[in-house]
Design a binder for these strands. Structure first.
Length: 434
RNA sequence: GACCCGUUCGUCUAGCGGUUAGGACACCGCCCUUUCACGGCAGUAACACGGGUUCGAUUCCCGUACGGGUCGCCA
């Protein structure tokens, strides 16, 4: 069995970064494409960061996106434990090997350092191609602190060896660290894995995406109600190309098409705009039932407890084309669900500029009052009758009616609004306005 | 500073010696439409620069410029 084993090895920083999410995605896609194993390993050697909340941020972020791991925390596996804080014994063993070979020494502070051979290294990177480091002048790296805790480069290599990792797919910021990792592999007399360094994600200003940038944390997308698969789809297209003039690739298709050859070389700037567009594409194609399922809890957290029957299929079918994120649905739905809603300043101003709307609204109310069935066709006709009596075109009544009923200049079809509101509330709003 | 990686529309990208340089987001116009959207159609917009190699370079090579990364007892 020479099956593929890859890993995503985040440090618990308190959030799952979009850059990390994309690294996880590429590893996950690579594993799934090759029917291999995707390992989640938590690099928590820095005790200060290692809090339950920080760990949870990683798990919930990956889970929300739909990236499941075959081995890792909360899952187990034959190569565990999967938290570095629980692997000290393994590190001690490997350190002893290094010490026996005379490759290390203790410095004045008591930390253990690895003598850097500074020998030329060649990396046959699967993405960057052959990369040569001929003139190295690196200091001896610390492998263990005086307090006994281990350093990233060391544990990273040891774990990759112990976990049988075959391909290291990680950010390009590690490319320059790779020669030192190769030093370690050589010292351990272990054949190194294949390396694939993916380009970085930059923020919209062109600098490295940092924790403080808008959209840096996966949790933000979840909170804003982005479609998780849409976010994944966007992330996949950021630095990887299926080489086809198409943007929407469902997860299964991503799996079959993914290959390291398709990964592009240059760093990519993140576009919240396009991410939103793709998210919208996923909502546009969503059936009413699953949409209702994700929408109801979202509305609840937004303070809009809504009975499921308030979101009938007809409404959701229209709603889905108007949203890119679930939060877009909140203002749209608000006037239909509660009686206190804001009136858009622009809508009010436009209405005022057209003269006193009161006669129009009264005429509408009169016509609506005559409607017994309260069905779309009849309501449409009622608007027509009101227009006729006023000697106006039907269109002239639509806008005032819309503003009186919803406070908005846009939104759902008017008859749908009237139908949802019902006779009583509709007449009440027409009479109450402004 | 040393070392490493990169450079096609504003952004994400296709291209792999000869193309009207294609697609997508955004933008703009039109159509559809009671509104906002959705959808459809059309448009503006790119090969960083300089040398080579070649009959011919966006494509290959070398420089320059610019951008990014690494050089930690962070990961």
């Amino acid at each position: 069995m020479s099956s593929v084993r890859v890993r995503f090895a985040p440090s618990p920083t308190g959030m799952l970064h979009v850059g990390g999410a994309r690294t996880a995605l590429f590893n996950w896609l690579f594993a799934r494409h090759h029917s291999g194993t995707f390992i989640l390993r938590v690099e928590d050697t820095d005790q200060q960061r290692n809090t339950p909340e920080a760990n949870e941020a990683i798990f919930s972020g990956l889970t929300w996106l739909g990236l499941d791991w075959d081995e890792g925390p909360n899952r187990g596996g034959s190569h565990g434990p999967y938290r570095q804080s629980e692997r000290t014994g393994i590190y001690e063993r490997y350190l002893a090997k290094l010490q026996d070979s005379g490759a290390t020494y203790s410095d004045e502070s008591g930390a253990i350092r690895f003598r850097c051979p500074n020998s030329p290294r060649r990396i046959a990177d699967l993405i960057c191609g052959d990369t040569h480091f001929e003139q190295r002048s690196e200091p001896d790296m610390t492998v263990r602190r005086a307090d006994g805790s281990f350093i990233f480069h060391f544990v990273n290599v040891v774990d990759d060896i112990e976990m049988g990792v075959t391909h290291v797919i990680r950010g390009e910021d590690h490319l320059s660290n790779t020669p030192r990792h190769l030093d370690l592999y050589e010292a351990f007399r272990v054949e190194p894995p294949r390396f694939a360094h993916i380009p970085l994600i930059l923020n919209e200003n062109g600098s490295k995406m940092s924790k403080r940038d808008e959209g840096a944390s996966v949790a933000e997308y979840r909170a804003a109600g982005y479609h998780p698969t849409g976010v994944l789809n966007y992330l996949a297209l950021l630095g990887w190309s299926p080489k086809e003039d198409r943007e929407i690739f469902p997860l299964e298709e991503l799996v079959t098409r993914f290959s390291l050859e398709g990964i592009t070389r240059g760093n990519a700037k993140f576009s919240l705009e396009k991410c939103g567009w793709i998210s919208g594409q996923y909502f546009h194609g969503m059936d009413p039932e699953p949409l209702r399922e994700v929408l109801l809890p979202f509305l609840a957290t937004a303070g809009l407890e809504t009975p499921a029957d308030q979101l009938p299929d007809a409404l959701l079918l229209e709603l889905r084309t108007k949203i890119r994120t679930l939060s877009d649905a909140v203002p749209l739905l608000l006037p239909l669900l509660v009686d206190v809603f804001p009136v858009e300043a622009a809508a009010a101003a436009k209405l005022a500029s057209q003269g006193d709307p009161s006669p129009l609204l009264r005429a509408l109310a009169t016509s609506f009052a005559e409607e017994s069935s309260w069905q779309p066709a009849g309501l449409e006709a009622a608007i027509g009758r009101a227009a006729e009596r006023l000697g106006l075109k039907k269109g002239a009544l639509m806008f005032p009616c819309r503003v009186a009923l919803t406070g908005q200049s846009g939104g759902f079809g008017l008859t749908l609004v009237l139908e949802r509101l019902g006779r009583e509330r509709s007449l009440e709003r027409l009479g109450r306005f402004p």
